[in-house]
Write a protein that binds this DNA or RNA. Structure first.
Lengths: 119, 119, 119, 119
DNA sequence: GTGGTCTAGACCACG
DNA sequence: GTGGTCTAGACCACA
């Protein structure tokens, strides 16, 4: 279900988060579905349960999943996941625009660069 | 000359690098100009000289400055700095575009978001 | 595993880097293998951990190894190491050819010198 | 007569040595000619006399020039300069060949690379 | 346990 | 004085 690449130097809980987020956003894990339990995922990936725990906790804080004590963790309903992700990405785009601005590149020039890149 | 924000958890040497890079890219430190010496900057920011040293070393590796033992550190000539920075930023923009794509947002839609943001 | 020659005046971290690079390029440390931890190597060579750390950090920047916080440092996968090294060496050869040229020795004469040296 | 590029991060006495060596090898300073005195060169380049002194001393050790106390420094006669330089360069080439060998590239393969580069 | 950052203080080569 | 290297020892996040 999830593949973790051990050789790319980011914290493992980040990689777990990324994998789960992608499964959710792509629809592979539909809204309302139950995620594997922390323990299940920990053994199947041979990763420390604390690490999985942290990934789940942060995904919940970011609105992708909801955890129900005693029941498990579920993909958030109502499009919460995509909305959360869009907010994050817009944030990143804004930050990047600010960095470009510091080199004298305006937002519309960035837009042009994006269009040039388009296939 | 430089202000370091102590409340953002990134490594200090990264913050120093960012500040200096911006001063260089904005032209506040023109090409060929001498930077403050490692020790001067260390005392003025009350940061350990080794930390400043590391910032300078990495800025040199990235082509922003040149350090001459016994003489001091200087802003690199030949406009290498801006070119290096533009390459970094384009790389970031590409990566971000890929992330947007994973949520079904095309490059031209990103471009639109940028224009909306424009004042 | 590694021998450091203390009588050649180059920085210690450079010697450590060279030794490790050679172990990697020769295949003695295969791709994906774990390197000794910073602390282990430090005690076994009686060198300060910071010095080893610097060697590892630079080897990572150059693409030879990958460091995963909390897990260890690993030889980079994908054969990036040899490619990186070949690029470095070709660069050196070109520079040397230019120096020979300044004394009136052409590239093909250099080639002859190399063949004479061959056992 | 000599131009020193202050922004390339090598010790100044090395740059002075390189400049003088090139003037000698190119014939711009013919055998037997007198070099400028240490003091003259120091003031004309606005460089510390100690630095010039060191360059001269090392050039003498390497056989490019001879210093006659009370008279000055002179370009070595009898082709000493070129012979010295060739020895240095052959040494460098050997060292580089050893580095290539460590990556599995033989001397004859290096020779091929040199010929490919030839215009 | 791991890698990574930071400080404090020393020493060196260079100018 | 400058940049550069090294040691010693501390602290942190991550696993």
């Amino acid at each position: 279900m999830i593949q973790i690449n051990y050789h790319d130097s980011r914290p493992i809980y980040e990689k777990v988060k990324d994998s789960l987020r992608q499964l959710i956003l792509s629809g592979a894990l539909p809204e309302g579905d139950r995620l594997p339990s922390v323990r299940e995922l920990a053994v199947s990936l041979t990763i420390n349960p604390n690490t999985i725990q942290r990934a789940y906790r942060e995904l919940e804080q970011e609105g992708y999943i909801v955890s129900v004590p005693g029941k498990g963790s579920f993909v958030a309903r109502g499009g919460g996941a995509r909305a959360a992700r869009m907010a994050e990405l817009k944030e990143k785009l804004s930050a990047l625009a600010a960095e470009f601005e510091a080199v004298g590149v305006s937002r519309s020039e960035m837009a042009d660069m994006l269009k040039e890149e388009e296939p």
